[in-house]
């Protein structure tokens, strides 16, 4: 993030100077800050509701039931997490909400999961393999029914707005498999590298 951030801004500044769009770029910087705060406020509103509901579900043991459903998947993707109740429950809830297309409920659960996994790793300042896998799965879409897109197509006068469903599900499936596959590959290679160094 460090390098990306610094060099990205430097690159933007250089390009802006050469193309004479320095004014617009400066204005964009100011606007982004404002957008972040506005976004933060609307996120905070949704988090209030969902974190509240999550806590209630957790207290009554409902989240433990959801976690049991996802246990085999967790064992495969993020070994070492399934023994920790808090982390595995939050991860399972995040996956469930994502599949249902409830992005605004998935994020609070996801952030709780990150926190629980960090505590599990003894307050790590570097994301663990489990955290990386979780984030990568979250940054490839899991949503099965793209409700926003269907309504967008309907609004534009599509003959059958729902016919996007099949290609969307197929390509969601493929990208998720690709993301998980690549991550497992990198993690295996990392482990082999560590072993090599130790010997």
């Amino acid at each position: 993030m460090e390098k990306l951030f610094v060099w990205g801004i430097v690159l933007a500044a250089l390009v802006a100077l050469f193309t004479g769009s320095a004014e617009e770029t400066g204005a964009a910087l100011l606007q982004s800050g404002q957008a972040a705060v506005a976004l933060g406020l609307s996120l905070a509103g949704a988090y209030c509701l969902w974190c509240g509901v999550l806590k209630v579900m957790e207290l009554s043991g409902l989240t433990a039931r959801v976690a049991r459903l996802f246990r085999p998947i967790l064992r495969l993707l993020m070994p070492g997490i399934e023994s920790n109740a808090e982390a595995s429950e939050a991860v399972s809830l995040n996956f469930a909400a994502n599949l249902l297309g409830m992005g605004n409920a998935a994020t609070p659960a996801g952030l709780r999961a990150m926190k629980a996994m960090q505590e599990l790793a003894g307050g790590a300042k570097l994301p663990t393999d489990a955290m990386c896998m979780f984030l990568i799965v979250n940054s490839s879409s899991l949503q099965l029914v793209p409700t926003t897109l269907i309504s967008l197509r309907a609004a534009a006068g599509s003959a059958s707005p729902g016919d996007i469903l099949l290609p969307s599900i197929l390509s969601t499936l493929c990208t998720s498999l690709l993301a998980v596959g690549l991550t497992l590959l990198v993690q295996r290679m990392g482990k082999r590298g560590e072993k090599g160094r130790a010997e």
């Binding site: 933007a12 982004s32 957008a35 705060v37 976004l39 996120l43």
Partner: peptide, 19 residues
């Protein structure tokens, strides 16, 4: 999370606006 989101939006905004 807000400061981190601000940094990400800043980067994107600058890269888009300058072309």
């Amino acid at each position: 999370a807000v400061p981190y989101v601000a940094a990400a939006l800043l980067l994107v905004g600058a890269l888009r606006a300058c072309g």
